[in-house]
Simulated assay, not measured.
Amino acid sequence: MASVDTATVSKQRIGWIDAAKGLTIILVVMEHTTFGVELALGELPAIFGTIAEFAKPFRMPLFFLVAGLFAHKALFGDWRKFVDGKIVHFAYFYVLWSVIQIGIKILVPHNVGWKVTYVDLLMIPIQPFAVLWFIYSLAMFFVTLRLLRSARPFFVFFFAVALYFTQLDTGWMLIDEFAWRFVWFVAGVYGAKQIFEIADWARARPARGLALALLLLTCLATVVFSHLIDVRALELLMGFAGGGAAVMLVSIVASKGLAGPLSFVGKHSLYIFLSFFLPMAATRMAMVKLGFENGDLITLVATTLAVISPILAFKIVEKTPLAFLYVRPDAFRLTASRKAAPNLMMAAGGD
């Protein structure tokens, strides 16, 4: 696998990237909404529960694969820019929104069994809270590959695969998630050229690309619903199969001009990722209290609002003192200020 400086890739070739990011963040929100609804109603929503189970093997692999596509410049560029963009940047949002989420769960009355205390605030540096482990893990992945940048890609990938098969279960999220997810980020970084070629091929031959993507998704569904996904090697293969199918499909859809909504969501993924939990939980609780019993309907409405609301929230606070919620202030920068990057995975790439 050879690295590729994706800054040299034409805009035409990467038009599908935002759509892939949009798909990923929607799957993330949907999965958390689905299991929140299950907790509230006592049963898993039939339709969205099935979708969540089907998407589980490739949802996070796709996220980290795409995050790694634009990492080359950061990994091999200036140290000061790297620390600012890949450590301070992620640390700022991680700490800020960890405090916000934990604070809300401590202060807001509830009857869902949340076990959140002030101890969770003290654990922020070593034990990520809720979905914010994504940000912490991205920073760790960048630091690790920066330190290993002189190593041969083959050996780094072999190391990442070996970690994957250790199936670590220490109870410490940072350690366990690193071992489980690092392989996908490495694949995105060192396999960027191949991933772009897959997208190019599917776009140039849409009928074949669609057929291959559907075949891969059929294999994925067969493995998932037969419970063979519990076999570690098959889980790894299905992660690549689902990720590859998603890349081909979004590339085809984007080339036909049909990926507008997904691309819009992808361009604002950072805002959504940071704050979707609040409208998601509020909508779910409100609908349950109002007597709604259809778990799929609750999941659909809550997911939709959880994706849209953070974008609207940013637009509202953008020019107010509350802009610090979504834009890192100059006081927390090591380099010159630049326009905010609303896209989480673009922020994960080059500077």
Score class of each variant (00 low, 15 high):
residue 168 L to M: 14
residue 215 L to S: 04
residue 207 A to F: 12
residue 165 F to G: 06
residue 165 F to V: 01
residue 177 E to D: 13
residue 168 L to D: 06
residue 154 F to S: 03
residue 170 T to C: 08
residue 187 A to C: 13
residue 172 W to R: 10
residue 175 I to A: 13
residue 211 A to D: 05
residue 156 V to R: 05
residue 183 V to E: 01
residue 182 F to C: 07
residue 171 G to T: 03
residue 197 E to Q: 10
residue 180 W to I: 14
residue 227 H to K: 12
residue 175 I to S: 10
residue 226 S to V: 05
residue 208 R to P: 08
residue 196 F to C: 02
residue 155 F to C: 00
residue 196 F to A: 05
residue 207 A to W: 10
residue 177 E to R: 12
residue 169 D to V: 00
residue 159 F to N: 05
residue 207 A to Y: 11
residue 152 R to H: 15
residue 214 L to I: 12
residue 167 Q to K: 13
residue 175 I to Q: 10
residue 218 T to E: 04
residue 168 L to P: 00
residue 167 Q to Y: 08
residue 199 A to L: 04
residue 210 L to G: 03
residue 208 R to G: 05
residue 222 T to H: 07
residue 175 I to V: 12
residue 208 R to F: 09
residue 172 W to C: 02
residue 200 D to C: 00
residue 182 F to T: 01
residue 220 L to Y: 02
residue 206 P to S: 06
residue 185 F to Y: 11
residue 194 Q to G: 15
residue 154 F to H: 00
residue 182 F to K: 01
residue 175 I to K: 02
residue 227 H to T: 11
residue 204 A to P: 01
residue 216 L to R: 00
residue 155 F to S: 09
residue 184 W to R: 06
residue 168 L to E: 08
residue 217 L to N: 04
residue 212 L to T: 14
residue 186 V to D: 11
residue 175 I to R: 06
residue 187 A to N: 09
residue 202 A to K: 06
residue 190 Y to W: 07
residue 175 I to T: 14
residue 213 A to W: 00
residue 199 A to I: 12
residue 177 E to C: 04
residue 226 S to M: 09
residue 170 T to L: 06
residue 197 E to C: 01
residue 201 W to G: 01
residue 164 Y to W: 07
residue 173 M to Q: 12
residue 188 G to L: 09
residue 158 F to E: 09
residue 160 A to T: 08
residue 187 A to I: 10
residue 153 P to N: 05
residue 153 P to E: 05
residue 216 L to D: 01
residue 191 G to H: 09
residue 180 W to M: 13
residue 163 L to I: 07
residue 206 P to T: 02
residue 212 L to V: 15
residue 171 G to A: 01
residue 191 G to Y: 10
residue 225 F to L: 06
residue 223 V to P: 05
residue 152 R to I: 09
residue 226 S to P: 01
residue 159 F to W: 10
residue 215 L to I: 11
residue 200 D to M: 00
residue 177 E to F: 06
residue 212 L to R: 03
residue 158 F to N: 03
residue 176 D to E: 08
residue 164 Y to R: 01
residue 204 A to C: 00
residue 162 A to S: 14
residue 194 Q to K: 15
residue 173 M to N: 10
residue 163 L to R: 04
residue 181 R to I: 02
residue 211 A to N: 08
residue 218 T to G: 14
residue 201 W to V: 04
residue 173 M to E: 14
residue 207 A to H: 13
residue 169 D to W: 07
residue 206 P to Y: 05
residue 178 F to N: 03
residue 155 F to Q: 04
residue 204 A to G: 04
residue 227 H to I: 02
residue 198 I to R: 03
residue 155 F to N: 07
residue 195 I to K: 08
residue 176 D to Y: 11
residue 185 F to M: 07
residue 198 I to K: 08
residue 226 S to F: 01
residue 195 I to Q: 04
residue 218 T to D: 01
residue 187 A to H: 08
residue 161 V to Q: 07
residue 169 D to Q: 13
residue 179 A to Y: 13
residue 193 K to S: 15
